[in-house]
Amino acid sequence: KMTIRVKGKELARRIAKEMKDRNLKVEIHEHGDEVILEIE
């Protein structure tokens, strides 16, 4: 399990899509400006 902190929703969406393309499970937690992606 891996956690990534990202500034900006646009970048977070791009990373999430990339991870889904690799068949990984992604959970997205938004905290205002910061987005936390949990990847399994």
Rank of each mutant, 00 (worst) to 15 (best):
1 K>A: 08
1 K>G: 09
1 K>R: 11
1 K>M: 09
1 K>F: 09
1 K>I: 11
1 K>W: 10
1 K>Q: 06
1 K>T: 08
1 K>S: 07
2 M>H: 11
2 M>N: 04
2 M>L: 13
2 M>C: 15
2 M>D: 03
2 M>R: 12
2 M>G: 04
2 M>T: 11
3 T>N: 04
3 T>H: 07
3 T>S: 07
3 T>L: 11
3 T>P: 02
4 I>G: 01
4 I>F: 06
4 I>T: 01
4 I>N: 02
4 I>H: 02
4 I>K: 02
4 I>C: 11
4 I>E: 01
4 I>Y: 05
4 I>R: 01
4 I>D: 01
4 I>S: 00
5 R>F: 10
5 R>H: 10
5 R>V: 13
5 R>Q: 05
5 R>S: 07
5 R>C: 14
5 R>I: 12
5 R>P: 03
5 R>K: 11
5 R>M: 09
6 V>Y: 03
6 V>Q: 01
6 V>T: 03
6 V>K: 02
6 V>I: 12
6 V>D: 02
6 V>F: 06
6 V>A: 02
6 V>P: 00
6 V>W: 02
6 V>M: 06
6 V>S: 01
7 K>V: 10
7 K>S: 09
7 K>G: 04
7 K>C: 09
7 K>H: 13
7 K>A: 07
7 K>Q: 12
7 K>T: 10
7 K>I: 11
8 G>R: 06
8 G>W: 08
8 G>I: 07
8 G>A: 05
8 G>V: 06
8 G>M: 05
8 G>Q: 07
8 G>E: 07
8 G>D: 15
9 K>L: 15
9 K>Y: 11
9 K>D: 04
9 K>I: 15
9 K>C: 13
9 K>G: 06
9 K>V: 13
9 K>F: 09
10 E>L: 08
10 E>I: 05
10 E>V: 06
10 E>W: 10
10 E>T: 07
10 E>S: 07
10 E>N: 07
10 E>Q: 08
10 E>R: 09
10 E>F: 05
10 E>H: 08
11 L>A: 09
11 L>Y: 07
11 L>G: 02
11 L>E: 11
11 L>S: 04
11 L>F: 06
11 L>N: 08
11 L>M: 07
12 A>G: 09
12 A>N: 00
12 A>F: 02
12 A>L: 03
12 A>C: 08
12 A>R: 00
13 R>H: 14
13 R>G: 08
13 R>S: 12
13 R>T: 11
13 R>M: 15
13 R>P: 00
13 R>E: 14
13 R>K: 13
13 R>Y: 15
13 R>N: 13
13 R>I: 14
13 R>D: 13
13 R>F: 14
14 R>L: 11
14 R>N: 05
14 R>Q: 12
14 R>K: 12
14 R>D: 04
14 R>V: 09
14 R>W: 09
15 I>A: 01
15 I>Q: 00
15 I>S: 01
15 I>W: 04
15 I>K: 02
15 I>V: 06
15 I>N: 01
15 I>P: 01
16 A>T: 04
16 A>N: 01
16 A>M: 11
16 A>Q: 04
16 A>H: 04
16 A>D: 01
16 A>R: 03
16 A>W: 09
16 A>S: 04
17 K>D: 08
17 K>M: 09
17 K>W: 05
17 K>N: 09
17 K>Q: 13
17 K>F: 04
17 K>G: 05
17 K>I: 06
18 E>T: 12
18 E>R: 13
18 E>D: 08
18 E>I: 15
18 E>P: 00
18 E>V: 13
18 E>C: 13
18 E>L: 15
18 E>G: 08
18 E>N: 10
18 E>S: 12
18 E>F: 15
19 M>T: 01
19 M>I: 05
19 M>E: 00
19 M>W: 08
19 M>D: 00
19 M>S: 01
19 M>P: 00
19 M>L: 14
19 M>C: 10
20 K>S: 12
20 K>N: 10
20 K>T: 14
20 K>E: 12
20 K>G: 08
20 K>P: 00
20 K>Q: 13
20 K>F: 09
20 K>H: 09
21 D>S: 12
21 D>H: 09
21 D>I: 08
21 D>Y: 07
21 D>E: 13
21 D>M: 12
22 R>F: 06
22 R>P: 01
22 R>A: 08
22 R>C: 14
22 R>H: 08
22 R>E: 03
22 R>M: 11
22 R>D: 02
22 R>S: 05
22 R>W: 07
22 R>N: 07
23 N>I: 03
23 N>H: 11
23 N>K: 09
23 N>M: 07
23 N>Y: 08
23 N>S: 06
23 N>A: 06
23 N>P: 00
24 L>K: 04
24 L>N: 03
24 L>Y: 14
24 L>R: 04
24 L>E: 02
24 L>H: 06
24 L>F: 15
25 K>R: 12
25 K>L: 09
25 K>G: 04
25 K>I: 11
25 K>P: 03
25 K>W: 10
25 K>S: 10
25 K>N: 10
25 K>H: 12
26 V>L: 04
26 V>C: 02
26 V>F: 07
26 V>W: 02
26 V>I: 07
26 V>K: 01
26 V>P: 00
26 V>R: 00
26 V>S: 01
26 V>Q: 00
27 E>Y: 14
27 E>Q: 13
27 E>F: 13
27 E>A: 13
27 E>P: 01
27 E>H: 13
27 E>S: 13
27 E>D: 09
27 E>W: 14
28 I>Y: 07
28 I>H: 03
28 I>E: 03
28 I>S: 04
28 I>D: 00
28 I>L: 10
28 I>Q: 04
28 I>N: 01
29 H>F: 14
29 H>T: 13
29 H>S: 09
29 H>M: 10
29 H>Y: 14
29 H>C: 11
29 H>I: 14
29 H>E: 05
29 H>D: 03
29 H>K: 11
29 H>G: 03
29 H>Q: 08
30 E>C: 11
30 E>K: 05
30 E>H: 11
30 E>M: 12
30 E>L: 12
30 E>T: 09
30 E>F: 14
31 H>P: 02
31 H>G: 05
31 H>Q: 12
31 H>L: 14
31 H>F: 14
31 H>D: 14
31 H>C: 13
31 H>Y: 14
31 H>E: 14
31 H>W: 13
31 H>N: 12
31 H>V: 13
32 G>Q: 06
32 G>A: 07
32 G>L: 07
32 G>R: 05
32 G>P: 05
32 G>N: 08
32 G>S: 04
32 G>H: 05
32 G>T: 03
33 D>M: 05
33 D>K: 05
33 D>Y: 05
33 D>F: 05
33 D>N: 08
33 D>G: 08
33 D>A: 05
33 D>I: 05
33 D>T: 06
33 D>H: 07
33 D>V: 06
34 E>K: 04
34 E>D: 11
34 E>H: 13
34 E>M: 14
34 E>L: 13
34 E>G: 04
34 E>V: 14
34 E>C: 14
34 E>A: 06
34 E>F: 15
35 V>T: 09
35 V>D: 02
35 V>M: 11
35 V>H: 05
35 V>Y: 15
35 V>G: 02
35 V>C: 07
35 V>P: 01
35 V>L: 11
35 V>R: 02
35 V>W: 15
35 V>K: 01
35 V>S: 05
36 I>P: 01
36 I>S: 03
36 I>A: 02
36 I>M: 05
36 I>W: 15
36 I>D: 03
36 I>L: 08
36 I>R: 04
36 I>K: 03
36 I>E: 04
36 I>N: 02
37 L>M: 05
37 L>H: 00
37 L>F: 06
37 L>Y: 02
37 L>S: 01
38 E>L: 14
38 E>F: 14
38 E>Y: 15
38 E>Q: 10
38 E>P: 00
38 E>N: 07
38 E>T: 14
38 E>A: 07
38 E>D: 06
39 I>A: 03
39 I>V: 11
39 I>L: 04
39 I>K: 00
39 I>W: 10
39 I>S: 00
39 I>H: 01
39 I>C: 04
39 I>T: 02
39 I>P: 01
39 I>F: 08
39 I>Y: 05
39 I>R: 00
39 I>E: 01
39 I>Q: 01
40 E>C: 08
40 E>M: 13
40 E>K: 09
40 E>R: 11
40 E>N: 10
40 E>F: 15
40 E>Q: 13
40 E>T: 15
40 E>D: 11
40 E>A: 11
